[in-house]
């Protein structure tokens, strides 16, 4: 049973000061999935990510990528399969200009100048940053730096893309754009996307499955509806429902408005509300405009 893109099996990790960052974590992701690790700060997301890409070695448990343990891969092989985008783009953007930074990985792979150029073009195009090509990194906005950091990782052509808090520090529009970009990479290019986040509002729209982590343990995993239905668990993990779900949940609990399940997205909430409103009160937008 080794058709997982990533299979972390009963992984535990403690830092030298004794802090147990991960305890018996099982984390499995199939190829082509979009999976979110949802956890509050200090829950072990970043540690797990570092273990998944081989930067840290677990004290117990094994990590397999594509059915092979990490030690079976050379670094070059491993990092062409799995790419990591850091939370702070400054950690990752090491060159002076965008094109040079995106070229960093492909050049390390020993590709020819022509191939390197193709990869720069493709990667920048993927993230919608073609126009930034010759710009100096330190003249980019934070959102642009995030895009370029993703492009630099995509230029390695990984089949698995892991992102640590990709929406952190972005404005609401930037947050949505980033998630849409990741959704496109997942749908259109078949890249397995794993992201660590504690931002809950957009996850139900994009993530196929969510892993809920708290204090180094996986509390629950499954589709968004399964994970978000246990509000007590969310509270214990210092997380919350998406705002739209919370509104409808409160309408249900405090005002007795009947709900058929808990909507997690604006689309789902809209459909539920439309069901509750009498048909004669609904004015089609077209008629409204004419009036």
């Amino acid at each position: 049973m080794d058709n997982f893109a990533i299979d972390a099996d009963h992984v535990s990790f403690a830092y030298p000061n004794g802090f147990m960052a991960l305890e018996d974590v099982v984390f499995r992701v199939s190829s082509g999935e979009f999976v979110a690790m949802l956890a509050s700060n200090g829950s072990g997301k970043t540690t797990l990510i570092k273990i998944l890409v081989g930067l840290l070695k677990p004290q117990t448990g094994t990590v397999k990528i594509g059915g092979r343990t990490l030690s079976d891969y050379s670094d070059a092989q491993l990092y062409q399969r799995v790419g990591l985008v850091f939370q702070n783009p400054n950690d990752q953007l090491v060159s002076a200009t965008v094109a040079e930074d995106v070229a960093f990985g492909p050049r390390n792979l020993g590709l020819t100048a022509e191939e390197v150029r193709c990869r720069i073009d493709e990667a920048l195009h993927c993230v919608g940053a073609d126009h930034l090509r010759e710009r100096a990194i330190h003249h980019l906005s934070f959102g642009e730096q995030k895009r370029v950091a993703i492009a630099g990782t995509l230029a390695m052509k990984p089949s698995i893309l892991i992102l640590d808090e990709p929406t952190a520090g972005l404005d609401p529009a930037g947050e949505h754009e980033m998630m849409r970009l990741l959704g496109d990479l997942n749908h259109q290019q078949g890249i397995t996307v794993i992201l660590a986040t504690h931002s809950v509002d957009l996850l139900p729209l994009f993530a196929h499955r969510i892993y809920l982590l708290n204090r180094g343990r996986v509390l629950k995993q499954g589709p968004a509806h399964e994970v978000f239905c246990d509000q007590e668990l969310l509270r214990r993990s210092s997380l919350r429902l998406p705002y739209v779900s919370r509104l409808l949940d409160e309408l249900n609990r405090f005002d007795g408005i009947p709900m058929n399940g808990l909507p997690l997205t604006i689309g789902e909430a809209r459909l539920q509300l439309l069901e509750l409103i009498p048909q004669e009160l609904i004015v089609p937008p077209l008629l409204e405009a004419k009036a």
């Binding site: 570092k50 890409v53 930067l55 670094d75 070059a76 990092y79 790419g83 990591l84 850091f86 702070n88 950690d91 990752q92 090491v94 040079e100 070229a103 960093f104 990985g105 050049r107 390390n108 792979l109 020993g110 100048a113 390197v116 630099g152 990782t153 390695m156």
Partner: peptide, 20 residues
């Protein structure tokens, strides 16, 4: 430390490859 880790993940092996 973080930058070095990020560089390792993009194939850095102690030498930055410059363009010709």
């Amino acid at each position: 430390v973080r930058t070095h880790e990020a560089m390792l993940l993009r194939g850095y092996r102690g030498e930055i490859p410059f363009e010709t």
